[in-house]
Design a protein around this nucleic acid. Structure first.
Lengths: 198, 198
DNA sequence: AACTGGATACTGCCCTGTGCAGTATCCAGA
DNA sequence: TCTGGATACTGCACAGGGCAGTATCCAGTT
């Protein structure tokens, strides 16, 4: 029960530092922001706050909407101190899970069409994710925004996500151009991989 | 037991399509290549091949080095067909887990030094990971390489990793420049987040 | 010839995290 | 009144991570 808190615990604690939430609201908020660099299943967001309560970093308040109960979590002073401490610790190196790249890496076991299909998929995904980010930015730029005070750090993170999606799109376009002359995934018709790596 | 195979199963199957390996060798190989976009704990690489054998996609051969036993896994024709089929399926969207960004996102709960420390850490990690990639590339460019035939698709994947690391380094440098005039994480001294987002 | 340390070759166990099914209630609109 | 989507959870099975523990092998040292 008192196993050490995980980065996920601190991510939730960070959200509680902004305001109080029900787990359901946390889930919506994670989809909007945090999920771009710390994705977690909705399921987890019901367990994690309980651990924060057990650690004394949050409180749980039972409320109700009519007859339907809900639990509102709020941060404690000890929670804010713990968050502050954690913010100064060395972060773990990044972890990327990109199924598309596995398919590119082993593309020589399949057809050229399959490889190029995967590359098109990467480009399309990056474009639609970029559009999502841009829509969020437009929304914030226009209207008055609930968390205006948090926009400076928020903007740094948004720029990061835009940069990642842009890099993926750029790479996919580059790879599509490179493979355009290939005869197959194993017969690359004189294409020079050494040149591509320098 | 016959639960559907995961992307991890196909990642291992892809390695077996290149040649036969013991789980220990698989682990080394994953660290070298696949791990950059599909990282898995060594532990997993001892379980996964067993599932491939159960599915009829691989065979296990018990060998020994002196008195110490080892298991060599090899792909079957059905395995190659399964891999080929999988290569044509739509890949899942990318998943990024970046603890440093969580710290940036919630930096307004800590000090400016903490924020800039996190940014320096991102820059340093990206640089050292880039150096690792470059060292691998240099090694391949110089000597005769065991898997020369796989270099075209391998080069596409390597370029991807270089691009990601470069994007992270670029972003970290940009963010350090942006925050250089901040008084604190909440007093940004006239810094315009709107400008940073357009 | 014995000793040491790093590489090889695994397994067990506990924990985190995902995905999905299942159970309710609430509320706006038809 | 009815319906469907949003709200508010829990249980369960499985994927995956990290670490401790158990051996053997082998090259270099003493």
């Amino acid at each position: 029960m008192d196993s050490p808190l995980t980065p996920t615990s601190y991510a939730i604690l960070g959200l509680l530092a902004v305001r109080s939430w029900t787990p359901y609201e946390l889930a919506k908020q994670v989809r909007r922001g945090l999920g771009w660099f710390w994705p977690r299943a909705e399921r987890k967001l019901y367990d994690e706050p309980k651990r924060l309560v057990a650690a004394g970093f949050a409180t749980a308040t039972d409320e109700r909407t009519g007859r339907r109960p809900k639990t509102v979590y709020a941060i404690t002073p000890a929670g804010r101190r713990a968050l502050r401490r954690w913010l100064g610790e060395e972060p773990a190196p990044p972890t990327l899970e990109i199924e598309a790249l596995v398919k590119v890496f082993f593309a020589d076991g399949g057809t050229l069409d399959q490889l190029r299909g995967t590359l098109h998929s990467v480009a399309a995904t990056a474009q639609s994710r970029t559009a999502e980010l841009r829509a969020m930015i437009d929304g914030v730029l226009e209207g008055p925004y609930e968390f205006e005070a948090r926009m400076p750090t928020n903007a740094l993170a948004l720029r990061f996500s835009l940069g990642m999606e842009d890099a993926m799109a750029q790479w996919a376009d580059w790879a599509l151009a490179q493979t355009s002359g290939w005869q197959s995934t194993t017969d690359v018709a004189g294409w020079d991989w050494r040149a591509a790596l320098t």
